[in-house]
Amino acid sequence: MKSKAVSLVTNNPIKKKSVWSQFVRQWDTQIMIIPGIICVFIFSYAPMYGVLMAFKNYDLFKGFSASPWVGIKQFETFFHAPEFSYVLRNTLCISMLKLLIGFPAPIILALMLNEVRFMAFKRIIQTVTYLPHFLSWVIVSGFVVSMLATDNGSLNMLLQEVHLIQEPINWLSVPSYFWTILISTNVWKDVGFASIVYLAAIAGIDPQLFEAASIDGAGRFRQIFVITIPSILPVIIIFMILAIGNILNAGFDDILLLARNPILRNVSDVIDTYVYRVGVMNSRYSYATAVGLFKSLISVALLTFANRLARRSGNSLW
C-alpha cells in the first residue's frame, strides 16, 4: 500500500509544493474531513491517556496526576489472581463458540432465505428473526430465565408433557449447560439482524450468473456453492476479520444477566464481567484498567494476525 502511495506522489507535478498549498488547493474537500478527524481525536485518542491509570494506584480523591505510579503491579495481581485461569479460559472459549456458531448462522439463514420464492413468507421470516435484535438483554434474559425455571418454566413443562424427563431440570444452575444456553440465546437474538447484510450482498449478485449456471445444468445447491458463496466471500471475510478483532469481547450484559447463580462463575466469568465485578464495583479503577488493557492488547494482536491471513485472499482491512 505504502509503496503505491509513494510512487503516485513522485509522479505528481505538485510534489514540490508544500503541504499547506496542497491543503489550500483541496480546501473544499479538506473542510469536510476536518470535523471527522477532530471527532476521532477528541473521542478516541484524547481519552487514551487514561490507560496510564493501569500503571498507577489510582485514587479517586487524589486525582489522576497525584496518584502514585506502581509499574506493572496491577498486572501482576491479575496474573496471580485465583480467577485468572478460568476467566481467561472462559473468555477464549465463549468467544470462540460465538465465532464458530454465531458467525456462520446468519450466512446460512441468508442463503436459506434467498431460496424462498414466496415473498410474503420470506418477509415474515425476516421480520420475525430480526426483531429480537431490538430487545435489550434485560428483557431477553427475563424471557430465558423464566422459560428455563424449574417452577412453571415452559421448557420443563414441555419436556415433562412429552415424557422426555420425569423431574424438572434446573437448567441455569448446571455449569455444563451454561455455554449452550448462552450461545443459543445469542444466536436467537442476533441471527436475523446479522443476516441482513448478507442478504443485501446476495441481492447484488448479477442474475445472469445464475441463469448461465442453470443453463449449464447446475441445480439449486450447486448454484449456492459455485455462485452465491464465492460472490459474497469478500463480505464474509471482512466481517470475519471484524469478528476476530472482537474475539475477546465474549459478551457482558448477556453473561451478567443469565449467570445470576454464583455457582456458574467458574464457567461464566469472562474478562469483562470480572472487570466489572471486581474492579468497577469496588472502585479499583487501576486494576480494572490494567485488566482491560491486557484484553485490548490481545485483541489488537489477534486482529493484526487475522488481517495478515486475509491479505492473502486480497480482501484485507488495511
Partner: peptide
C-alpha cells in the same frame, strides 16, 4: 425449597 432459589429474580 424452590429449586430456582439461586437463579430467580425478586419479580418471580
Amino acid at each position: 425449597i424452590t429449586q430456582d432459589a439461586l437463579t430467580q429474580t425478586s419479580d418471580q
